[in-house]
Design a protein around this nucleic acid. Structure first.
Lengths: 195, 195
DNA sequence: CAAATATAATCGAATAATCATTCGATTAAA
DNA sequence: TTTAATCGAATGATTATTCGATTATATTTG
């Protein structure tokens, strides 16, 4: 019996993300993917049940990787400022290292496909929420509904990321995010969250 | 000579947005649109040069409407707190009144199509930036790079909108945004921006 | 004012390309 | 020897767009 080639599946996934970021979901097709990955269209169906299954697994894979990497060095018991800053730094690094994956992720999340996505175990989310509860209990931050808290704690971050990836130029020059600028936004966010 | 039917074009635009929100760009086709709008596929090409032209004009139309409505009652010379709160309220109302348009807008902005979009006159953006300059000069807020300022001033808002439209449930119940909750997020944002 | 004309809107059908998926034959490795 | 991976080709459906015929209306003419 012939074994399934893990490297081949990884190549398919990688090429799929590249194509989708370049062409969008509507420009993306199984035949184009097969050509880009250097194999026959029918081989794709060995690794994925169909097109939708491929897209959903792509999304699940990217999400899992981003969440795992965001937890590097993290603990719910970290002091609040330190823990939140670590989250910002981890996510910033991961997005910079995998910009295509992030663009794919955002494209997927804003498409109707996301409704077919089977949600993952809530481990990541509960870790984050535990972190907030500890911070409230220790008096580091004020008590707020979770959605409001996270919008304050991460909203600015993700808008900076958007500016960065779009190379947006609000002032004269195209914007490029650095860890220093990240910090410049982080300190005011702390002010917003203080009790 | 037979006149062009403005109501028909409006119906096409409306149905197109509905279909795209429901099916995504890849599920959306000219034939489906024709059927939904109750006309022949070829009639679409009277009103739009081709599929891409349709999508770009759809986007431009939605953007223009959102920006125009966001300026209702607004002036660059408004006191900072009042002006920013008006922006939040205006945008919140418009999104609640036109959720499909907003979803389409976000889907488009996160797709590669956005690169083919010819940017509009910068009137809106410069109005906003003038507003910030005035606020800095009057000492209402601290001086920050524009991108950092806007990420602080609007990042939390748009994340709340996302929670609202996704009916996200971080706590037990699905999240639904109200003007009161909006205010609850707005006050800390002011803290973040104070000098 | 009524009738004729001009013209763009509209339609249904057709075109060629591309789509997702399948199938039978072949290949490679356990 | 067995068996799943792989392939090339084929399937029928759907795609964007076009075309010639028809329709409706604004304008001009009688």
């Amino acid at each position: 019996m012939r074994p399934r080639d893990d490297a081949k599946e990884a190549r398919i996934r990688q090429k799929a993300i590249e194509l989708i970021v370049k062409l969008g979901f509507d420009g993306f097709s199984m035949q184009k993917l097969a050509r880009a990955a250097g194999l026959s269209p029918s081989t794709l169906y060995v690794y994925f049940k169909n097109r939708e299954d491929l897209l959903l697994k792509l999304y699940a894979g990217v999400q899992e990787k981003f969440e795992r990497d965001a937890l590097t060095g993290f603990s719910e018991t970290l002091p609040f400022e330190e823990g939140l800053w670590l989250q910002w730094k981890n996510r910033f690094k991961n997005i910079c290292k995998n910009p295509l994956e992030y663009r794919f992720f955002e494209q997927f999340r804003n498409s109707p496909l996301v409704r077919h996505h089977v949600p993952e175990p809530v481990a990541f989310r509960t870790a984050m929420n535990l972190f907030v509860r500890n911070a409230v209990r220790s008096g580091s931050i004020r008590q707020l509904p979770l959605e409001i808290f996270w919008s304050l704690a991460h909203g600015p971050f993700y808008m900076l990321i958007k500016f960065h990836l779009d190379q947006s130029s609000m002032a004269g020059l195209p914007f490029s995010l650095t860890e220093q600028k990240l910090k410049q936004a982080f300190l005011p966010v702390l002010e917003a969250l203080k009790p």
